[in-house]
Every structure is written in structure tokens, then in C-alpha cells.
């Protein structure tokens, strides 16, 4: 199902959580809402779910205006950050809830509900745990129950609020793959909120980056990483070294550091250079190498300019031996924005 969000505004008291937000989500897409805390990403998700209503603007499901439709009427699947499982119900009852509350001819038969619950338990690899209570499950298992409960109603869109936030790092990684697998198996349009850029870039088809209630950029993981449209996106997505300086004659200078800035007008600017975009170059600027540490196939170099500016460089492991003493660095590429 396609979802259109048009100029949505939402204030909490005097604090604007969403400011004229517009976003189009394609049918079957897996989209990440990425941003720091307080950026409005959860509010936007809750507006889409009908748990929060906007002060202005529209939310359309398939061209149908649902801006003020109740959460119950929207048929969305929502996975809460703390899962919000019903503690007094078994896992199977939790998953069946959305089908159980239906009335009249919409309500599937008991047999049908049981079949559906079993199918979902199998989908999230929790067969045989239907009789347990949520308190008897691990964090990762609870998350899977929350996911299958949301899927049970065959939602037109699946919404997840920081779905992996409450889990430890290893479980997080495996559940990430799991969500992708479930998404590919069901084909349901999916939107998830995260503050973890690695998670967003790893999992999503497209990423929407929010900052202070505004969408800064929407694009594929490659687009937002390689072609950030704003200093915020550049600083938030991926690793980078940030410099403040001036552009003059197609070159950005900050102290002894200089970076390419082809085609930019002269004036004060802020520049970002990715650690892996630096390489040794006799015509570059001079840095002292403080430390080199090897991590798998990569080498991380802590370098410092003569005026005390620290620069992170990432290079391939076989280059590591050249980073000793004082070396000259040049950046292949830099993102420079007028200040």
C-alpha cells in the first residue's frame, strides 16, 4: 500500500515535533525513519498509526484520507519499543488478539485463528512456545511475538518503533536479518524508526533522515551516505571528519588541512571527509601518525595535524605499514557546504 504524508505538523505544547513533513512511501517498501532522539521520528510513526493526530496536514493510505481515522480502523501493525505484550495472555492469545476482537462475519473461526497463529509462530521461529506467558520469554523472543502479533491482522502497513532498541548487540543483528526476511516473505509495506544509522543503512530500501521535526533527506542507503544534501545528514550518516574553514578558488582550507571543493563559490564553509576517502599523497597536507590499529581487513589510523587537529583515516590493511611518523594526506572526495 502506498502512503502519502502531506505537510504534517504536530506540536506538543509549544515544542514543534513535526514541521511540514512530506513523505511518499511506495507499496511493499521497507523504509527507515532515522534521526537523533527528539527529531520527531517516533511522532511521525505514531501519526501514521493513528496513535497521534496531526495539527495540520494529511495522511493518505492509497489516496484515501485517514488523517483522523482511529488506530483501530486503520489496520496497521504496530510493534512498540517495549513490545507492549499483554502480560496476562499467553503468546498464542497475544498473537490471536487482533483476530479475536473482530466482530460478526469479519471474525475468523476458531480453527482459522489457530491455524493463523501457528503459521505466524513458524514464520518467526517460535514454534511450540504458544502456551508460554511473555514473562517466560527472552527479550528477542518477546520482540518476535510482538512482530507476529502485529502481522496477524494482515496489516496494510507494518510500523515498528525502535524494534531492536531494547536488545543486546548480537540478538539485534540476527533479528535485523529476520525482519528483512519476514518483510520479503510477506511483502508488507514496512516503516521502522531507529536512531542507529548502521541499522537503517543495513536494513532499509530507503532511509528518511529527520532532524528537529524536518525531513532532511530521503534516499537509498547509498544516496544518503554518498550524496548527503546537508551538513546534518553528512555528520549523522557514516563516519566523517568535520572541518570549519573557507572555500577559495575551488579549494577548502582549514588551518593546514585542504580538501577539494570544485565548483563551489568562495566563502566560509563546513566540510566533511570520510575516513576512507583519505590516502597517502605527496602533494597533500602533513600529519603525524599517533597510532595504527588493525581491525580485520582494515587499518584505523589516528593522525594529527601540526596545529593539533585530529583526523581519523581508514585504509586497507596492506597500506598500514606506510603510516608511520609524519606523512602527507589528501582526500579523494569531500562534502563541502557553505556555512
Amino acid at each position: 500500500m502506498t502512503i502519502s504524508i502531506r505537510s504534517v505538523e504536530k506540536k506538543f505544547g509549544r515544542y514543534p515535533a513535526l514541521n511540514k513533513v512530506g513523505l511518499e512511501i511506495a507499496d511493499g517498501e521497507l523504509l527507515a525513519l532515522l534521526g537523533p532522539s527528539g527529531s520527531g521520528k517516533t511522532t511521525l510513526l505514531r501519526v501514521i498509526a493513528g496513535l497521534e493526530f496531526p495539527d495540520a496536514g494529511q495522511v493518505l493510505f492509497h489516496d484515501q484520507d485517514v488523517t483522523f481515522a482511529s488506530a483501530a480502523a486503520r489496520r496497521v501493525g504496530f510493534v512498540f519499543q517495549q513490545y507492549a505484550l499483554f502480560k496476562h495472555m499467553t503468546v498464542a492469545k497475544n498473537i490471536a488478539f487482533g483476530l479475536d476482537v473482530r466482530k460478526g462475519k469479519d471474525k475468523p473461526s476458531k480453527v482459522e485463528i489457530t491455524r493463523r497463529v501457528d503459521e505466524l509462530l513458524r514464520l518467526v521461529e517460535l514454534e511450540g512456545l504458544g502456551g508460554r506467558y511473555p514473562s517466560q520469554l527472552s527479550g528477542g523472543q518477546r520482540q518476535r511475538v510482538a512482530l507476529s502479533r502485529a502481522l496477524a491482522v494482515q496489516p496494510s502497513v507494518l510500523l515498528l518503533d525502535e524494534p531492536f532498541g531494547a536488545l543486546d548487540a548480537t540478538v539485534r543483528k540476527s533479528l535485523r536479518k529476520e525482519l528483512r526476511r519476514v518483510h520479503d516473505a510477506t511483502g508488507v509495506t514496512t516503516i521502522f524508526v531507529t536512531h542507529d544509522q548502521e541499522e537503517a543503512l543495513d536494513l532499509a530500501d530507503r532511509v528518511a533522515i529527520l532532524n528537529q521535526g524536518v525531513i532532511e533527506q530521503v534516499g537509498t542507503p547509498e544516496q544518503v551516505h554518498d550524496h548527503p544534501v546537508s551538513p546534518f545528514v553528512c555528520g549523522f550518516v557514516g563516519e566523517s571528519n568535520r572541518f570549519e574553514g573557507v572555500v577559495s578558488g575551488g579549494r577548502f582550507t582549514s588551518g593546514s588541512v585542504f580538501l577539494p571543493a570544485t565548483g563551489l563559490a568562495d566563502g566560509p564553509a563546513v566540510a566533511f571527509a570520510r575516513p576512507h576517502d583519505f590516502s597517502l599523497d605527496g602533494s597533500g597536507f602533513e600529519v603525524r601518525v599517533n597510532r595504527v590499529h588493525i581491525q580485520g581487513a582494515l587499518a584505523h589510523v589516528d593522525a594529527e595535524t601540526a596545529d593539533g587537529r585530529r583526523i581519523d583515516v581508514v585504509t586497507s590493511r596492506d597500506q598500514a605499514e606506510h603510516f608511520t611518523g609524519t606523512v602527507r594526506l589528501a582526500a579523494r572526495k569531500a562534502h563541502v557546504f557553505p556555512a
Binding site: 493513528g50 496513535l51 497521534e52 493526530f53 495539527d55 482511529s70 483501530a72
Partner: peptide, 8 residues
């Protein structure tokens, strides 16, 4: 703004 009732 008309008050729309939240689900809670």
C-alpha cells in the same frame, strides 16, 4: 483545532 480522541 478540533480535539480528536486518542486511542487511550
Amino acid at each position: 483545532m478540533a480535539a480528536h480522541r486518542r486511542s487511550t
